[in-house]
């Protein structure tokens, strides 16, 4: 008997407890049905996409994917050709490569800049540090839409539009408020005594930062990196505005496929799954950091 049931048994006469248990069980049925419905709605659409991506175009067009699952052993309906087609003929492989090329620096650069800034704001004394921090917190909320037009005009004037560089810098700028805010929260909570004793040992600020603060901040850096990586990987708006569609990345390519071939489901399902592979791997392998990063990142502007 667990503590909780023991406590209940003491508090209440056993007859009432038994009646309560029956009542709870009956009351539990709607709750269980509700959870069941939610789970079905939250998983079945994705399963349908995944199943369909392995079916031949004819099979997809003629029967629902659930029929395919019910007649699983009709082997002729299953194929990998959709992936071959979407990866090469429809350029998804190229898009995948481009997405990585945009996403990795767009994650490393802002987190580096933010870590330096957060360290300075948290532990170095200089006039204006509070104002800088208040401004950063305010900027967390500014919608991305407020920045797009003027930056695009500058990009066009200097011919940076459509370049990797332009994308990294844009994602750096847009990711910085959150990165700095998150890392500040973490770095400022490092015990003062650790930094003071390092200082007393003659460590320069650079050494304290690279050998002490950075290693200690790994959990926060990991959480933010995952958030920023996924945000950039999944981003459509910044890519459409600053990168264009001439060179594909996964989101713009998939959106284009929807626009040009909205009914060719064998292409769309496989294409959608290609764009989802990286986020899903991260989700399943780094779930704890993933959840933490998503929570912290939910305020991004």
């Amino acid at each position: 008997m667990s503590d909780a049931t023991l406590k209940k048994a003491i508090v209440k006469p056993s007859g009432v407890a038994g009646e309560n248990r029956t009542r709870a069980l009956i009351a539990g049925i709607p709750a269980r049905l509700f959870i069941l419905a939610i789970i079905v709605i939250w998983t079945v659409p994705t399963v349908g996409l995944l199943v369909s991506s392995f079916r031949t175009p004819q099979a997809i067009a003629n029967t629902g994917w659930w029929n395919g699952l019910a007649r699983f052993t009709e082997w002729s309906q299953w194929t990998l050709a959709n992936y071959e087609r979407v990866l090469f003929a429809d350029q998804m492989a190229n898009a995948f490569f481009n997405s990585l090329l945009i996403t990795i620096p767009s994650t490393v650069i802002p987190i580096t800049i933010a870590a330096f800034a957060a360290y300075a704001i948290a532990w170095m004394v200089f006039p204006g540090r509070k104002i800088v921090f208040v401004i950063i917190v305010g900027l967390l909320i500014v919608p991305l839409q407020m920045a797009l037009i003027p930056v695009l005009r500058v990009y066009t004037r200097h011919d940076i539009n459509g370049t990797y560089l332009g994308m990294w810098l844009a994602h750096t700028g847009f990711g910085l408020p959150l990165a700095t805010y998150m890392l500040y929260g973490y770095i400022s909570s490092i015990p003062k005594s650790i930094l003071e004793s390092a200082h007393a040992d003659g460590a320069t600020p650079w050494m304290m930062f690279t050998r002490l603060v950075l290693p200690l901040s790994i959990p926060a850096i990991a959480s933010f990196s995952i958030f920023q990586f996924l945000w950039v990987w999944n981003d459509l708006l910044v890519a459409l505005v600053f990168f264009g569609t001439r060179r594909p990345i996964v989101t713009t390519r998939l959106a284009e496929l929807v626009g040009s071939r909205g009914q060719t489901w064998h292409v769309l399902t496989a294409g959608a799954f290609v764009t989802m592979v990286v986020p899903l791997i991260i989700f399943f392998s780094l779930q704890r950091y993933f959840v933490r990063g998503m929570m912290a990142g939910s305020v991004k502007g």
Binding site: P45, T46, G48, L49, S52, L230, W233, N234, D235, L236, V250, T251, L254, A255, V258, G262, W265, L268, T269, G271, A272, T275, M276, P279, L280, I282, F283, F290, M294
Partner: peptide
């Protein structure tokens, strides 16, 4: 939460 808005939209279009 891991899926892009574009990917989710394709799922639901289907």
């Amino acid at each position: 939460m891991a899926i892009s808005f574009v990917g989710a939209s394709v799922i639901w279009r289907f």
